[in-house]
Design a protein around this nucleic acid. Structure first.
Lengths: 178, 178
DNA sequence: ACTGTTGGTTCAATGACCGAACCTACAGTG
DNA sequence: CACTGTAGGTTCGGTCATTGAACCAACAGT
């Protein structure tokens, strides 16, 4: 791996975590998975990642138990990748990273995250300021912000323009011929 | 860069963040900097990173404003790298990542983080459960946990065995001849 | 028979990473 | 002065991950 998996000698949980998710693309794959992307092809068009790299990342994420492969149709055999509890536990880290990137490098917010039950925007730690509790992932609603391209090219990005809950599978509309 | 800096087309603050800190070693350099490591040589021996890579990472981190180069002695000219506010703002993300790595892949905790004012161990978001507030970095005390090697080879790891506050420069003891 | 979809594998070229060696500027010692 | 040591790099050849394009396989639909 380009990142090199092994941070030998590092006695540190951060290094341990980076050995799993520190390679190029890996965290973006997990982000997409948390957003509800599940299929090889959807990851592919949304990320613009080389096919071989995607296949490799999905495999190692599955091996380490962040994703699980699940057959969603028998013939032809097709599998989708769903987020496990371990994978979902990565959300606070991803959120914190996104928060940092947005505060320091983006002018306009790209996405908002709200507590679906009460509509309140999540606080800095991903908690609900109104309810005062941690919000479970399926109750986090993601809504597009002003910085987002309103008419993206790929269908996955278009599907993600609609407000939706995390982990809820994205629904790709089949192209209308007209 | 091996990780490749550019996640082109990605409309996402996470991708933006990863363009800055997503390359191999970069987050570990920032972790060390937050722990109080400031000098080229200390990063070098503590991380076991190739010299050229370290020089490159320090430069780009400085360019992006996460670290600042500061002359600490005039002759011979020597610079150290200190964490800026922008760099310090990365702490929640690093902490969340470490938390995840520890919960899912480490048996014994390697380090504890406490609120120095009251001694309470930090909560899952890095807040102080007792005081109910966010803890500023200089008030976070880092103490070694049971999983840590009690007699590491390099002097920086040895210096980090003592409880210390974040951002507080590590003090490297000069080798006693005997 | 032909075309399209999904989920990959294979391959050559590129480029990042690695480790070792080298370099510069200075301080201290004899 | 010559010699040694320290701090902070740069240079270089070899290796390994990433990239993008091409190819493959299984099946569905027409």
């Amino acid at each position: 791996m380009a990142l090199g998996k092994d941070y030998a000698r590092q006695e540190c949980s951060i290094a341990r975590a980076l050995e799993i998710v520190g390679e190029r693309w890996t965290l973006l794959v997990m982000r997409d998975a948390l957003y509800g992307v599940r299929r090889y092809n959807d990851f592919l068009v949304h990320l613009g990642i080389p096919r071989a790299v995607l296949a490799s990342r999905l495999q190692t994420l599955t091996e380490h138990g962040l994703l699980a492969k699940r057959r969603y149709q028998q013939s032809p055999p097709r599998d989708e990748y769903v987020v496990t509890d371990r994978g979902a536990a990565l959300w606070p880290a991803l959120r914190a990273l996104g928060q940092w990137g947005r505060e320091h490098f983006d002018s306009d917010p790209l996405r908002y995250f709200r507590h679906a039950d009460c509509g309140t925007e999540l606080g800095p730690y991903g908690e609900c300021p109104a309810c005062g509790t941690a919000v479970p992932l399926p109750d986090v609603e993601m809504v597009p912000g002003p910085g987002l391209d309103p008419d993206p090219a790929d269908p996955v990005s278009r599907a993600l323009l609609k407000p939706k809950r995390l982990l809820q599978p994205v629904h790709i509309e089949t192209e209308p011929a007209a």
